[in-house]
Design a binder for these strands. Sequence first.
DNA 1: TGCATATTTGCATTCCTATGCAAAATTACC
DNA 2: GGTAATTTTGCATAGGAATGCAAATATGCA
Lengths: 336, 336
Amino acid sequence: MVQDRVTSIEVARRAGVSQSAVSRVFTPGASASPKMAAKIRKVADALGYRPNVLARSLITGKSRIIGVVVAYLENQFYPDALEKLSMALQARGYHVLVFMAAQDAGNIDQVLDEIVDYQVDALVMASVAMSSTLVERCDAAGIPVLLFNRRQDDARFASVTSDNVAGGRKLAEFLIKGGHRKIAHIAGWEGASTQRDREQGFREGLAAGGMKLFSRAVGNFDFEQSKDAARELFNSFDPPDAVFVANDHMAFAVMETLRSELGLRIPQDVSVVGYDDVPIAAWPSFDLTTVRQPSDLMVEKTVVSLLDSIDNPLSEPRQVAIDGPLIIRGSARKPQ
Amino acid sequence: MVQDRVTSIEVARRAGVSQSAVSRVFTPGASASPKMAAKIRKVADALGYRPNVLARSLITGKSRIIGVVVAYLENQFYPDALEKLSMALQARGYHVLVFMAAQDAGNIDQVLDEIVDYQVDALVMASVAMSSTLVERCDAAGIPVLLFNRRQDDARFASVTSDNVAGGRKLAEFLIKGGHRKIAHIAGWEGASTQRDREQGFREGLAAGGMKLFSRAVGNFDFEQSKDAARELFNSFDPPDAVFVANDHMAFAVMETLRSELGLRIPQDVSVVGYDDVPIAAWPSFDLTTVRQPSDLMVEKTVVSLLDSIDNPLSEPRQVAIDGPLIIRGSARKPQ
DNA sequence: TGCATATTTGCATTCCTATGCAAAATTACC
DNA sequence: GGTAATTTTGCATAGGAATGCAAATATGCA
């Protein structure tokens, strides 16, 4: 059952050549004569030989593995991005080693140890914050780090986000033009740059229109907590007439609560806008006005940045923020 | 920036011991005196030494990597299971290497090559069919394979599913007791065992109640195609009064189409039931009656089976089918 | 054809850790 | 304290492939 692996030595023996010849045939960029390559390929195919990636990694120092740390896959934005990222990397000969880490970062340290153990070529942190000690560790290990959907002022790592400040501003402008007077905000986790940026842009937009936030609650990017936040804001004798929920995932929780629990109609009684434009946002039941995070583009930029930092480790990490369009649907009253 | 890795030899040198001593301290089960262990650990910590998993794999023949092949993450059941599986394996010192493969199996062969290259200890195929040639390949490579949420008659691999036949039967009984007379079915991909089993159970249940399927369409587990299927079945002068959609993901598409496009009320005009009980099914907008696939339990069984087949390669693969409860909510008329 | 240059090929070594074996150190027991 | 039994330690090697270097072939050009 458990056959011995076919090695390059075995192939070499049967083809009557040296092990190095076999190696060169399977190493992109190495030189081998067409004749030799043909002969070796034939034997290799017959035996079912394939180079052992692990052994190769040992000597090249490159594992062709990208570690991806992700906190939770409940918010559809992440599985979607993970799927795209995985496919894009796969197409370039890389693969994704997944590490789950709780949001609260308690076990991130341990997770990071494990990552370093696997000699990953680079690291993508999706919606996970990096403490400065973690930065040091990766830096010391020579592993380039890219923050996905998060940004950090530390110039030592690359990041790819959407332009959250601009997006927040667009939403504020849209709600103001829609004639809303009492505009509230349900925030995600306050430690997240996405949260801070979106809120900042939103507040700027309000200020530019001579308004300010009517009320505010925190949902921590969590479904259940967002329901509580909705109750908190709307169980009031003077509730808001519009609310910007910091991402779509929370917005669904808010919409469900407003409609089924508080008996409010959307958008007649209250307008709701979100952020991300996950597929569910387009479902008729939600029809959510939101800012699209262009995940295809974000993944594309991520891959380019990643490969660049792998190929030349001295290149400066870049912080990319991609503009995302406002997607106007029916969950918020529209400007006349 | 790119430091040299700290190796066991370096640690040994600084601690004034042999490399083997260092190795033994970091190899579970190897013997080292407490004194020596303490000394080495101290030096190792100071240098930030951690064993290189890849080098270790090379010699032990175990990579502690589990390959997971998954077709698409759009159906929430899969990211959810992936998250749980990843955490469970992580807790046992394994990690998940993700491979995306298109449903149509065109590129599965290539994907499999890549998997073998990485010397994974085992393989989980989530909702991906195995052709018999693929079976041979894995068998030859000595890689145990487990089908997750799929079953195959071939006794050569383990599988973990819910008891789809029983689940289908429960749904039929429930709909019959609810007084439905025209019961339809929207099927997933017909090549999937889950589809065949659910439908078989459902038909058996109908037959036991002296009924048979009123009409049928195919949604291929795809959101858009399921909308078409709904249109096909319900744009009729004699539409069904109940429909069993083969999974929740498709059921949402069907519900959206029935309500927003065809103006039908659920459950007053038509009852809808699904399968999986993904989190969204509990949202008030859908409130979907469905059969729960106990993903915690399924993951648990998967991990146990996986580790067992890794530890003793001669053990017989087991096919596990876990019973899932009917979750009665409001999307289907209830029995009086 | 002859010589200089470019390309292939093989040899030997390297990457880092685990492990069988034998030597050394420790422990147990009389 | 002395010998036997046990544990600890170091030595040397293996695992599979990549690569610098030198030798061997092939190519170019007059």
